[in-house]
Design a protein around this nucleic acid. Structure first.
Lengths: 205, 205
DNA sequence: CAATGATAGGACCACACGGTCCAATGCGCA
DNA sequence: TGCGCATTGGACCGTGTGGTCCTATCATTG
């Protein structure tokens, strides 16, 4: 696809992450992507909503590459991968000083009730995320207690992370997320079968 | 205070909970509260922002009465009160079928970055909430392990609940919140000192 | 009675918004 | 040389927004 399209998508992603979808105007995006005018923008996107949908997709793909990919690393112990994934979420938030929040959670809270099109797409994003965690949990089942509910646990992990990111954003304090990350790891460790061993990789602090 | 003011506040609270602050226009509030026109509204509030601030305060007060009050019940075991409080959050969400979400979390995600005035006020709300949980944890310290970090645990509880409510809203499925509530109680129980007893009250299912 | 606040209703404003349309120019590729 | 897409630039439109102003009618209360 053309270079401009991704340029617009990137600019829009930044603006939406900073100010939300509603508060980001098409004119803002035009300025951000250094386009010449409205006609230039509408040459690439047929509406603001369509732009929003594509931004959401793109954000999820980036998250899949930089975050969720860790969950599938074949050479690392699955439960250790979960810890590394949590570390990665913390690291991603650190890049913006915790000010940015989750691109999914933000949109979810902003649009879940007001805009059905977005709600459905955000639901799909959470579902894909949850299914990746469920797969990992399934892979780790020899180390887990028999009664672990993978669906429930995967939802809990996502909820805790989303809530943590939200609180971090409100308090403008990264240590909120760090503390919750610690507790979340401890909660996961609580599900390990007695006597099972979790193999720690070297690069984990 | 005059009856009209609270009438406006109530109408605005409903609308903001349904559609967010930005998407709720002053005219919507006027219709909702059955006022005669703009002048009638501006007779009671000097700006839309001021209305928003008061709605936020009011929502917190209602939450304090209907939810946080449980945390201070003197006749019930503190840790059991925590469980009852979690049940109350679930019950509150049930009233709207999980569609409404947290009045604080919604505003937080919508306005934390865009509107400093709201961000500060929402931060204060979370802080007051957290401090109530910390007090309870302090009261329960004979039953808790020595190394329990009350600040961290209180934040974790709030984050898990806020995240759960958000996911519930996106999925339009109350069972998400119910599942997370179960896990959250188990996480709290994990901090109980070996041999300590948690006194269960009768009305708890 | 007079004064005061509540109610009513509407005109008006400046601005921002998403979106359309058009006319002109650049620019690479067959 | 010509075709088609990319770019530029701007006028324009309908609608909704928060907010102001003005006038007039009620009811209450000193």
């Amino acid at each position: 696809m053309s270079d401009r399209r991704t340029q617009i998508l990137d600019a829009a992603a930044t603006l939406i992450a900073e100010r939300g979808f509603t508060s980001t105007s098409v004119d803002d995006v035009i300025k951000g992507a250094k386009l010449s005018g409205k006609s230039h923008f509408y040459h690439y996107f047929k509406s603001k909503d369509e732009l929003g949908y594509e931004v959401l997709n793109r954000q999820f793909e980036r998250f899949a590459e930089r975050g969720l990919a860790i969950l599938r690393e074949p050479m690392i112990d699955p439960l250790e991968r979960l810890n590394l994934f949590i570390d990665a979420v913390v690291a991603l938030q650190s890049e913006s000083g915790g000010r940015r929040g989750s691109p999914f959670g933000n949109l979810a809270a902003e649009l879940a009730d007001a805009h059905e099109g977005f709600r459905v797409r955000i639901e799909a994003v959470f579902e894909r995320w949850a299914s990746q965690i469920r797969s990992l949990l399934w892979e780790a089942r020899p180390q887990l207690q028999d009664d672990v509910d993978a669906v429930r646990l995967s939802r809990f992990i996502i909820a805790a992370l989303e809530g943590a990111v939200l609180m971090t954003r409100v308090k403008r304090d990264l240590s909120v997320l760090e503390g919750i990350a610690i507790d979340l790891k401890r909660f996961i460790a609580m599900h390990v079968r007695d006597g099972a061993v979790v193999q720690h990789s070297r690069n984990h602090e």
